[in-house]
Design a protein around this nucleic acid. Structure first.
Lengths: 223, 223
DNA sequence: TTTTCTTTTTAGCTTCGCCTAAAAATAGCC
DNA sequence: GGCTATTTTTAGGCGAAGCTAAAAAGAAAA
């Protein structure tokens, strides 16, 4: 089945909404995610239901059917593989890659995806630490916590980010906070939930609650 | 100016028609190239003229304006750079790459094109031997002749192909005719313009007129 | 030069994806 | 339970890009 880029984007948006809320996706949520009017969303939902890609009941929100979910995870797979390519091979920074990968994910060629995956040596995570689904759509889940929940005195490894905005990522880069960095919580202020961390045993950084809640870390033990 | 992929494809088609015929592109020629009805072409030509990308006079065919030509050559540049990437890095064969590059050429990111060009070490020709335009749209022209015009007893280097169809390219591969191969014309038959060639000083191959007229060669002297 | 053939354009219609405004259904609150 | 607010859907329209059929223009041939 050949889908338009627009249809693909709807499926991806639905997938991401369900992933987060673990319920069904509402018209409004999709409308916000894609920045289109709710009326347009309703229309598209009818079309996708017609194509057997989603389960859609009027006023009840949508679920993905197996086929629709497959398409969505494949898009995410391609998106993240291209992000790895852009950073590792073409030396882009992680705040630059999203809009480019957003286009590249729509390239239709299973052979290309397979070749790219092999070329990059089957990466499991993208440059933001997000897992890359395999061909079947399976995702490696990693035990991780937001840094804000970490304990003072403990050291963690930065493995992912929650927020993907350019501003946030640029601030991280500016603070030497890149994936794999060691973060030891040296101090913690209950008043505003901010903290001080020692980065790679060298530089001390101050992190607001907003920053630390958007950083995913894990204990050094479990790789 | 942001163009749709369709508009881009029209500009590229017009460019290629003019490149071949060195005249203006007719509605019919464009219609054949893009496999759309002449009526649809007329409609699009009006739109492109409105956007100042082409010179269009009713019943007189079209010319590209500077801006339109720039877009066309940039598309060709991106297409051919991606073809190099697919063959050199991802190990695709030259008969597989065209449809993929046809999609990749529409990715909009000047930074990506620049990075890819650098990554590939600024290639001047694509895997079919076609020249890659530079950022300004300039094309390296290479002195070359169709093999069919070569002289018996002389040795040539295969530098390009005229035809790009899958069937043709697969036949070439099957005959060990890859770019860079040395071809010595050992025999020639006037009746049907066919010839025998010695490939890389090793294997003798028989080439029909149709084959040899689609192979571009140059003397070993001028690289 | 007139007739015929080919090419191109116009006219009118379709689908996709989007919109706004209004109506209908659901959810939240007193 | 009934009123209000929110969400969702319907209705009606628009632009892009395509189509066919018919008309008009240009080219070729008699």
């Amino acid at each position: 089945m050949k889908l338009s880029q627009t249809e693909e984007n709807y499926l991806k948006a639905i997938y991401k909404i369900i992933e987060k809320s673990s319920k069904s996706a509402s018209t409004n949520a999709i409308s916000k995610a894609l920045e289109t009017s709710p009326a347009s969303v309703t229309e598209m939902l009818k079309r996708l239901a017609e194509k057997e890609l989603i389960l859609y009941e009027k006023y009840k929100g949508v679920q993905l059917k197996a086929q629709g979910e497959k398409i969505a995870t494949n898009l995410i797979r391609k998106h993240r593989l291209w992000e790895v390519f852009l950073v590792q091979e073409l030396n882009f920074t992680w705040d630059e890659i999203h809009p480019i990968a957003e286009q590249l994910e729509h390239i239709q060629s299973p052979e290309l995806t397979i070749a790219l995956d092999k070329y990059l040596d089957h990466p499991k995570f993208d440059p933001h630490g997000d897992p890359i689904p395999d061909q079947e759509g399976n995702i490696t889940v990693r035990q991780q916590i937001p840094l804000v929940e970490g304990k003072p005195g403990h050291a963690y490894i930065l493995v992912g980010v929650r927020e993907h905005s350019k501003n946030f990522l640029q601030q991280l880069e500016n603070m030497d906070l890149i994936l794999g960095a060691e973060l030891e919580i040296t101090d913690r202020f209950e008043f505003d939930q901010s903290m001080k961390v020692l980065v790679n045993g060298a530089k001390e950084q101050f992190l607001s609650q907003k920053m630390s809640s958007n950083l995913y870390v894990q204990n050094q033990k479990n790789g």
